[in-house]
Lab assay of single mutants.
Amino acid sequence: MAEQVALSRTQVCGILREELFQGDAFHQSDTHIFIIMGASGDLAKKKIYPTIWWLFRDGLLPENTFIVGYARSRLTVADIRKQSEPFFKATPEEKLKLEDFFARNSYVAGQYDDAASYQRLNSHMNALHLGSQANRLFYLALPPTVYEAVTKNIHESCMSQIGWNRIIVEKPFGRDLQSSDRLSNHISSLFREDQIYRIDHYLGKEMVQNLMVLRFANRIFGPIWNRDNIACVILTFKEPFGTEGRGGYFDEFGIIRDVMQNHLLQMLCLVAMEKPASTNSDDVRDEKVKVLKCISEVQANNVVLGQYVGNPDGEGEATKGYLDDPTVPRGSTTATFAAVVLYVENERWDGVPFILRCGKALNERKAEVRLQFHDVAGDIFHQQCKRNELVIRVQPNEAVYTKMMTKKPGMFFNPEESELDLTYGNRYKNVKLPDAYERLILDVFCGSQMHFVRSDELREAWRIFTPLLHQIELEKPKPIPYIYGSRGPTEADELMKRVGFQYEGTYKWVNP
């Protein structure tokens, strides 16, 4: 592979701008107003304001973009700056750019259920340069409990009458099928589907988006991507930290609602779906819905739930269990780990287990898709061969690698495990991989909904998990304890083995 010439960040961002501006969906010269509902909250200060700053800094926003914060707290732009700027990672050389960014910011205080507050917000936006005809993007960085009041008031008082209007809704989209349907029906009564952007930030990850290209742009994968060759698929999300004093919020939802029903299920769809007619948003989402419709409700015998306990040999936070978090209700049975087996009941995947695993306070930070292939028929190497695996590593250190057998150097035919490896950090030294939120917010500006969740996708996802969630809430089974920093409950490994996964433990990928 030829040595790549190092590029400056300015040059890299210039390439990104060229890609972005050559499309006809990006209205570079139009006025846009980006409204952050819930501007005083954690999500706004840690993710949304920093993301908008990065896009502005790199010249990736339309030229005439204004940012308006809205929340109940009586704040000023200076207050917003004070709480969000520490997350910007701005350099001293960017000081003038930073001043320009905050000059485009404003803030309006108001209630979430008060019509007069929204009329005041609308008047404020109209007073901005060309504000009355601007395109408006409303980001709901809010708890779902206020979605209905907020969307109703936005629709009645704050819509642009000339430009387009788009609304970005953060997960969780309800707690179960019934609450999700209620919320979807409410929002759909106010906005068209092409105006609604239900954001799952995992769909903005580079390697998640790469799944489609790997599958449908490489001839070698087509013939082997089926039940005849693939023994099982494992989708993993692991965090090495616990709730760390923020367990009160987590306890309301648990690990299945927080990660599995959305992030992991979306990745499953991209692995299992048929080739779409095109890369058009609805063509892709149509195929994802077909996959979900082929999955039956989760069966309790295919589920393992766990909850982390303190590690007596650990240090600091590792010595504390979930129930030691003062914000967690006493005696909570909320799971911090889950392993679930699903089956896609169609011709391509009949009988292939899709194993979804996620948890907190585990032994490493990792998100990946792992396809394990069947054993080689007619073994001539005296059971020395391990199964081939194709691994798409989402985070950290984005990579695609194939675990395969090669001859060990020497005189004899002794096979050993090795890999074919594409590590993004080595291959793409001159490429700026956008943060997931950067990519998705740019998608909203461009009107691309491919990486957002459609209402029928959402409904099918909740259909699969709601009976299990209701059973857990009714019966309150005690989750299996696992030690902070471990791989999780051993019962999860036993479940995976029972459905056909072979864990060798003899080879570990190392970032080159």
Results as ranks from 00 to 15, higher is better:
residue 99 E to F: 09
residue 189 S to W: 10
residue 93 E to H: 14
residue 89 K to V: 12
residue 75 L to N: 09
residue 96 L to E: 07
residue 107 Y to T: 10
residue 230 I to G: 04
residue 206 E to T: 09
residue 139 Y to S: 11
residue 32 H to S: 15
residue 67 I to Q: 00
residue 150 V to D: 00
residue 32 H to Y: 15
residue 72 R to Y: 00
residue 17 R to E: 13
residue 77 V to Y: 11
residue 140 L to G: 12
residue 180 S to Q: 05
residue 184 S to T: 15
residue 16 L to K: 13
residue 220 I to N: 00
residue 31 T to F: 13
residue 29 S to K: 10
residue 85 E to I: 14
residue 168 I to R: 01
residue 7 L to Y: 14
residue 241 F to L: 06
residue 166 R to G: 08
residue 154 I to R: 00
residue 125 M to N: 07
residue 27 H to N: 13
residue 237 F to D: 00
residue 80 I to E: 02
residue 90 A to F: 14
residue 158 C to Y: 10
residue 50 P to G: 08
residue 94 E to H: 08
residue 241 F to I: 07
residue 84 S to R: 07
residue 134 A to E: 10
residue 139 Y to Q: 06
residue 48 I to R: 00
residue 63 E to A: 12
residue 109 A to I: 09
residue 215 R to N: 03
residue 60 L to V: 10
residue 241 F to T: 05
residue 191 F to E: 02
residue 205 K to H: 01
residue 56 F to M: 07
residue 137 L to C: 12
residue 67 I to H: 00
residue 144 P to L: 00
residue 85 E to M: 10
residue 243 T to A: 05
residue 169 V to W: 04
residue 154 I to N: 04
residue 91 T to L: 09
residue 184 S to M: 12
residue 32 H to N: 14
residue 254 G to T: 02
residue 107 Y to R: 01
residue 126 N to K: 11
residue 157 S to C: 12
residue 62 P to A: 10
residue 69 G to Q: 00
residue 223 P to G: 06
residue 190 L to I: 13
residue 123 S to Y: 15
residue 60 L to E: 09
residue 29 S to G: 08
residue 153 N to E: 15
residue 67 I to M: 06
residue 81 R to M: 15
residue 133 Q to Y: 09
residue 143 P to D: 02
residue 164 W to R: 10
residue 122 N to V: 12
residue 239 E to M: 01
residue 112 Y to R: 02
residue 111 Q to K: 11
residue 217 A to Q: 10
residue 155 H to T: 13
residue 225 W to L: 02
residue 76 T to R: 10
residue 219 R to S: 07
residue 102 F to C: 07
residue 21 F to T: 12
residue 105 N to M: 12
residue 95 K to T: 11
residue 173 F to Q: 07
residue 70 Y to E: 04
residue 96 L to G: 11
residue 197 Y to Q: 02
residue 115 A to Q: 15
residue 255 I to K: 03
residue 16 L to P: 14
residue 233 V to I: 11
residue 170 E to Y: 00
residue 212 M to I: 06
residue 143 P to T: 03
residue 214 L to N: 03
residue 108 V to W: 04
residue 120 R to H: 11
residue 208 V to Y: 07
residue 16 L to S: 14
residue 26 F to V: 14
residue 175 R to V: 08
residue 204 G to K: 00
residue 122 N to I: 08
residue 122 N to D: 10
residue 32 H to P: 08
residue 234 I to R: 08
residue 243 T to Y: 05
residue 184 S to N: 08
residue 256 I to M: 14
residue 57 R to Q: 08
residue 139 Y to A: 05
residue 149 A to W: 09
residue 174 G to M: 05
residue 225 W to F: 06
residue 209 Q to K: 02
residue 113 D to Y: 14
residue 227 R to W: 04
residue 144 P to N: 02
residue 98 L to I: 12
residue 190 L to F: 11
residue 225 W to H: 05
residue 201 H to L: 00
residue 194 D to R: 10
residue 75 L to Y: 15
residue 189 S to I: 09
residue 195 Q to H: 09
residue 38 G to K: 00
residue 13 C to A: 06
residue 154 I to C: 07
residue 81 R to S: 06
residue 101 F to A: 02
residue 126 N to L: 14
residue 206 E to W: 07
residue 252 E to H: 12
residue 95 K to S: 11
residue 117 S to F: 04
residue 48 I to E: 00
residue 145 T to D: 01
residue 123 S to K: 15
residue 49 Y to W: 10
residue 7 L to K: 14
residue 166 R to N: 04
residue 42 D to A: 10
residue 125 M to L: 09
residue 123 S to Q: 12
residue 95 K to N: 05
residue 255 I to P: 06
residue 26 F to A: 11
residue 234 I to V: 13
residue 216 F to L: 00
residue 86 P to A: 15
residue 187 I to M: 15
residue 205 K to N: 04
residue 54 W to R: 11
residue 40 S to T: 09
residue 110 G to K: 02
residue 44 A to L: 00
residue 100 D to M: 10
residue 218 N to L: 01
residue 163 G to W: 06
residue 84 S to P: 00
residue 112 Y to W: 09
residue 194 D to I: 08
residue 48 I to V: 11
residue 167 I to P: 02
residue 141 A to K: 07
residue 47 K to R: 11
residue 51 T to I: 09
residue 17 R to P: 13
residue 93 E to N: 13
residue 178 Q to N: 15
residue 156 E to H: 13
residue 136 R to A: 08
residue 202 Y to P: 01
residue 118 Y to S: 08
residue 23 G to A: 09
residue 201 H to P: 01
residue 59 G to M: 09
residue 228 D to H: 09
residue 165 N to M: 15
residue 161 Q to K: 13
residue 257 R to A: 14
residue 196 I to D: 01
residue 166 R to F: 01
residue 172 P to I: 00
residue 121 L to V: 08
residue 90 A to R: 01
residue 151 T to D: 05
residue 146 V to E: 05
residue 151 T to Y: 06
residue 236 T to H: 04
residue 24 D to M: 09
residue 63 E to F: 11
residue 44 A to N: 01
residue 57 R to M: 02
residue 196 I to L: 10
residue 84 S to L: 12
residue 183 L to D: 01
residue 124 H to I: 15
residue 73 S to D: 01
residue 103 A to M: 12
residue 7 L to F: 14
residue 98 L to K: 04
residue 198 R to I: 05
residue 195 Q to V: 06
residue 108 V to T: 04
residue 192 R to M: 09
residue 251 D to A: 13
residue 144 P to R: 00
residue 61 L to Y: 02
residue 76 T to K: 13
residue 208 V to M: 12
residue 159 M to L: 07
residue 45 K to S: 10
residue 71 A to C: 08
residue 150 V to H: 00
residue 80 I to T: 03
residue 156 E to L: 11
residue 54 W to S: 05
residue 208 V to D: 00
residue 252 E to R: 07
residue 146 V to R: 08
residue 47 K to Y: 07
residue 180 S to W: 04
residue 215 R to A: 01
residue 25 A to E: 12
residue 56 F to V: 04
residue 160 S to E: 11
residue 239 E to Q: 03
residue 49 Y to Q: 05
residue 58 D to C: 09
residue 195 Q to N: 07
residue 105 N to Q: 14
residue 230 I to H: 00
residue 231 A to D: 09
residue 120 R to W: 10
residue 115 A to Y: 09
residue 252 E to Q: 15
residue 40 S to A: 02
residue 238 K to T: 04
residue 7 L to T: 14
residue 61 L to D: 00
residue 230 I to F: 06
residue 149 A to K: 12
residue 82 K to H: 10
residue 227 R to Y: 11
residue 188 S to W: 02
residue 87 F to C: 14
residue 109 A to G: 11
residue 130 L to R: 07
residue 57 R to H: 15
residue 182 R to P: 05
residue 121 L to E: 00
residue 219 R to E: 04
residue 107 Y to E: 06
residue 205 K to E: 01
residue 6 A to E: 15
residue 235 L to M: 10
residue 17 R to H: 15
residue 238 K to D: 01
residue 189 S to Q: 08
residue 168 I to M: 07
residue 212 M to V: 05
residue 242 G to K: 04
residue 75 L to K: 10
residue 243 T to I: 11
residue 141 A to C: 08
residue 192 R to S: 05
residue 8 S to G: 11
residue 6 A to K: 15
residue 8 S to N: 14
residue 44 A to S: 04
residue 25 A to R: 14
